[in-house]
Structure formats: structure tokens, C-alpha cells
């Protein structure tokens, strides 16, 4: 019997942004660290992301945006999770996100924001230490 839980992560790109290099690199890195990664592809609405996260019963949602729409789309995901009573899912974000936006996103419920240059190992460690 396995003693540690397999961590499940949904990697999603909300909005219209098509830059998925970072999302894909992170998906692979998480896989290589032993996690199950559900990759949902481009142009996901917050509604789709939350519903997929619930059906997949993931521990973590990783959102990636480079288009600048994070201030609208990240909090919307959190809002919907709350509506569905699924706020126990850890939500992290990444992409081109100005420092000054980060406090607001965290206040909205994003657990951590990873900006360009973050090593994947740091994200892996964060997930491992924050998933109960």
C-alpha cells in the first residue's frame, strides 16, 4: 500500500493568452517530481477550470497568464471555488505579473505567485509543503 498520497495538480491557462511554454515546462517538472498533472490546454474560462478541478479532485490548481488579465481571472477562479465549496484546493499562479499586483492576488486567495525566473524546484517544494 502506498504511504504518501499522489499529489494531483491541474495546470490551466485561463483567458485568451496562448503562451504556454511556462505552463508546459512546469507540467513536466511536476510530473517528474512524481505528481499527476492534468493539463487542460489554452483558452479556459474560470468556470471550466473550477469544474475540471472538482471532477479531477486535484490538490492544486496552477494558473498561468502572460497577457495581463490576471487581476480579473485569478480572483474569479477563487470566487467560483468558494461558490462550489471547494476552497480547500490550493491555487497558485504564474506568468508576467507585476510585483505590485501580488499582494492583491494573495488577498484574493492565491496562495503564491511565481514570476519569471522561478526555478521549477521552488514550485515543487511549495506544493509539497502546502498540500496536506
Amino acid at each position: 500500500m502506498s504511504c504518501t498520497k499522489t499529489i494531483r495538480v491541474l495546470i490551466a491557462k485561463p483567458g485568451l493568452d496562448g503562451h504556454d511554454r511556462g505552463a508546459k515546462v512546469i507540467a513536466r517538472a511536476l510530473r517528474d517530481s512524481g505528481m499527476e498533472v492534468i493539463y487542460t490546454g489554452l483558452r479556459q474560462t474560470p468556470e471550466q477550470i473550477v469544474e475540471a478541478a472538482i471532477q479531477e479532485d486535484v490538490d492544486v490548481i496552477g494558473l498561468s497568464i502572460l497577457s495581463g488579465a490576471h487581476n480579473f481571472l485569478f480572483p474569479r477562479v477563487i470566487e467560483l471555488l468558494k461558490e462550489k465549496n471547494a476552497q480547500d484546493i490550493l491555487v497558485i499562479g504564474g506568468g508576467v505579473i507585476p510585483d505590485e499586483d501580488i499582494p492583491g492576488l494573495k488577498a484574493a486567495g492565491i496562495a503564491e505567485v511565481f514570476t519569471p525566473g522561478t526555478p521549477t524546484s521552488k514550485i515543487i517544494d511549495f506544493i509539497k509543503s502546502h498540500v496536506k
Binding site: 483567458g15 485568451l16 493568452d17 483558452r43 474560462t45 497577457s67 495581463g68 488579465a69 480579473f72
Partner: peptide, 11 residues
Amino acid sequence: HPLSKGEVGKV
């Protein structure tokens, strides 16, 4: 358009 929300004028 609903999908444009948050993206208008951004990039």
C-alpha cells in the same frame, strides 16, 4: 464578448 473580459487592451 464574455471571453474578452479582463483582456481588452492588455497586450
